[in-house]
Design a binder for these strands. Structure first.
Lengths: 219, 219
DNA sequence: TAGATTGTTAATCGATTAACAATC
DNA sequence: TAGATTGTTAATCGATTAACAATC
């Protein structure tokens, strides 16, 4: 553990770490032992200085001329994000997005495991989605008390979001990954991470529009 | 059109605009005509000054004491993002995530319409998902030439991403919303917006971990 | 050794927040 | 009028980038 060397990281740095992790694991699987920040920068489409800063935040140390030890750097990132031990998660709301996340392979690469899925629709309860049984929401609290669940993934419609969040909070969860547009009210010790797909779409559309306007000015 | 009043907007501002849009449309549907930045700030969990700055970027103008006209502000945001006319989009790759996006109701609220879906799996081609037929990828170019498609949504596995992107580029698309982890190589006039779910998960896990460490220090 | 690459310190850039006059 | 709320200008804060000595 090199926890004592961890720095306070910029939020954008934390968002980029999973990308480094993916690249490093790919390199590892090819048998590489070392990688330079220069190489990672090229793969990421950024400058080497950003890679050095980002990796430094996790506490890993490179060696001048040689670069970073892949294995040690993977461990440093996983330690830093709390991805070293598999994190168990619950998911509430098995509509189309919930089903998709239930089958999302990337989570396994990040040592996140969705161990149970919940819904309140009698037609869905008992059925199997991506190899996992859907339970009634009323089973959430008793199941959570047995397992040590830290993360709840919330994929219910907006009107049901606050109630679903309360089920999660009562089950002893530490953080909620909220895919609904609802602004959840939760106790201060619970972390809520809002995920909003339309923000990415807005950026894409604005960038397309900006480009079109530049072109029309030129003509 | 108040295009001439649009300022250069900060990227985080653009990401927040869809949230304002949602709130404003909700208020409009309730019959409200005016809203203050103070009220919006409370709903968003931020400071009023941020709301004023964000809305100012779209070119809308409020009136001291009264606030912002809801209808005009909705129009300003939609103009700003290019969401005033419905944007047609294609989606490639109808796995679980692709299917989820195909049925994602939020897009309709943002005037984005997925008009056709493509895959290369013979078992999927011809089937109907969320009321939309899945076409063979080879049909993409001819269909795109008829419609004026600006946006391609890419939800194929990593190994297929570059090829799918090339199909989209050849079809005359302006921007790609890339849900694969692949770093796409495209011509300079094509906008690529990478969407990475694991970055949000990383932030959530880090925040949970940081909170746990503060607590353990206290004890 | 020579040269590539690292970590550190400082400079720049961008975004948020504060202060306040203008105004409805 | 009095007071809430706006837009503007300036100050602060945070993140990225640059420069460079240290080092393998």
């Amino acid at each position: 553990m090199n926890q004592e060397k961890e720095k306070v990281a910029a939020l954008p740095t934390i968002r980029r770490l999973p990308v480094y992790l993916r690249l490093l694991k790919e390199l590892k699987s090819k048998g590489n032992l070392l990688v330079s920040g220069t190489y990672l920068a090229e793969k990421m489409g950024c400058e080497p200085i950003q890679v050095r800063k980002d990796l430094a935040a996790t506490g890993t140390e490179g060696r001048p001329r040689l670069g970073f030890e892949i294995e040690k750097t993977i461990e440093a990132i996983e330690d830093f994000l709390g991805w070293n031990n598999t994190q168990d998660a619950f998911i509430i709301g098995i509509g189309s997005l919930g089903s998709a996340l239930l089958g999302y392979k990337t989570f396994e690469h990040h040592n996140i495991s969705i161990v149970a899925a919940f819904d309140n629709d009698p037609e869905k309860i008992g059925s199997i989605v991506h190899g996992k049984e859907i339970f009634d929401i009323s089973k959430l609290a008793p199941l959570a008390s047995r397992m040590h669940i830290q993360i709840g993934i919330l994929t219910v419609p907006e009107f049901a979001a606050q109630m679903a969040a309360e089920y999660l909070v009562n089950s002893g969860i530490k953080g909620i990954w909220n895919f609904s547009p609802a602004n959840l009210a939760v106790p201060a010790d619970i972390v809520v991470q809002n995920e909003d797909l339309s923000s990415g779409l807005a950026v894409l559309c604005k960038r397309i529009k900006a480009k079109a306007e530049v072109n029309s000015e030129r003509c």
